[in-house]
Simulated assay, not measured.
Amino acid sequence: MSPVTIVTGGSRGIGAAAVRRLAADGHAVCLSFREDADAAEKVVREVVDAGGRCIAVRAEVSSEDDIEVLFRTAREELGQITGLVANAGVTSPMMPLADQPVSQLRYVLEVNVLGAMLSARRAVQSMSTARGGGGGSIVFVSSSATIHGGPGEYVHYAASKGAVDVLTVGLAKEVAKEGIRVNTVAPGMVDTEIHTVSGDPERAWKAAGRIPLGRPGDPAEIANAIAWLMTDQASYTTGAIFRIAGGL
């Protein structure tokens, strides 16, 4: 049987790249999206046209009910779930913390932290050998912003991703004996649509001069690491945080 993996936030950027790479590796993939049904359907069509299995489910990851629908649909249409890529994440317009509206702080924390926790919680319920599952792998998508803190731009975003890193370490230890590995990839500056939301679509390339490799990353490069963590080649890897940031 092929592995069955859920990718949250799989309609664009790193999430979409992960869907394509995992499908190419033989995974049946269920991607979640929040608003852009057309973008989600485009990714699904790409996978299906290439001979893979892929479905899309609208879900707000900070909603327990939506997460339940997401996992139940994936199980019913694709089979026993073996993996989760908890990629869904948001940022907000760049500004100092003192100027950020409380609504933006709450939104970023709910999606990036609570959303990751709810997704992982449901994945453990599905995959844990202690609960009747067959084991599996969870990969969170964090950020190298946890290293530099995002001063003047998005301290709240960096803090939310720091919580994801701690979640990785603790959950990995908690479920190691239940057949589940838990790891994180922490991308640096990657050329995706998320910078448009921050108010600077060209931000990734503007930062190229301070990146040792001289350029931002491509979403496919992050997807490669995610895919490896899902394989048996990573069978002794859990609780790890992989920074993929071009040397920054």
Rank of each mutant, 00 (worst) to 15 (best):
M1D: 09
M1V: 10
S11I: 06
R12W: 06
I14T: 11
I14L: 01
G15W: 09
G15R: 13
A17H: 10
V19G: 06
R20W: 03
R20T: 08
A24N: 07
D25K: 03
G26W: 03
A28F: 02
A28D: 12
V29F: 03
V29I: 13
C30P: 03
L31C: 04
L31G: 00
F33S: 05
R34Y: 11
E35V: 14
D36R: 15
D36I: 06
K42N: 11
V43R: 12
V44H: 07
V44C: 09
V44S: 05
E46M: 10
E46C: 03
A50H: 10
G51K: 05
G52I: 11
V57F: 02
V61K: 10
S62M: 09
S63E: 07
I67Y: 02
I67V: 14
L70R: 02
F71G: 05
R72F: 01
L78T: 13
G79Y: 12
Q80S: 15
Q80P: 08
G83A: 02
L84G: 00
P93V: 06
M94R: 15
A98H: 13
D99G: 02
Q100T: 15
Q100R: 14
Q100M: 14
V102C: 04
S103A: 15
R106P: 04
Y107E: 13
V111I: 15
N112L: 02
N112F: 04
L118Q: 05
R122I: 00
R122F: 00
Q125V: 06
M127E: 03
A130Q: 09
G132H: 09
G132Y: 10
G133Y: 00
G134Y: 08
G134Q: 12
G134N: 13
G136Y: 00
I138A: 01
F140L: 08
S144L: 07
A145M: 07
I147V: 15
H148L: 04
G150P: 01
P151F: 02
E153Q: 15
Y154V: 14
H156G: 06
H156Q: 13
A159Y: 13
S160Q: 12
G162D: 11
A163Y: 11
A163E: 09
V164M: 05
V164R: 06
V164G: 04
D165K: 13
L167G: 05
L167T: 12
K177Q: 15
K177C: 09
P187R: 01
T192P: 01
E193A: 11
I194D: 06
H195T: 10
H195V: 05
H195R: 13
R203P: 01
W205C: 02
A207N: 14
A208T: 14
R210E: 15
R210Q: 12
G214Y: 11
G217T: 11
P219C: 05
E221I: 10
E221C: 02
N224F: 11
L229Y: 05
D232P: 00
D232W: 06
D232A: 07
Q233S: 11
S235A: 11
S235V: 08
T237S: 07
G239I: 06
I241P: 04
F242D: 00
F242V: 09
I244R: 05
I244Q: 04
G247Y: 08
L248N: 09
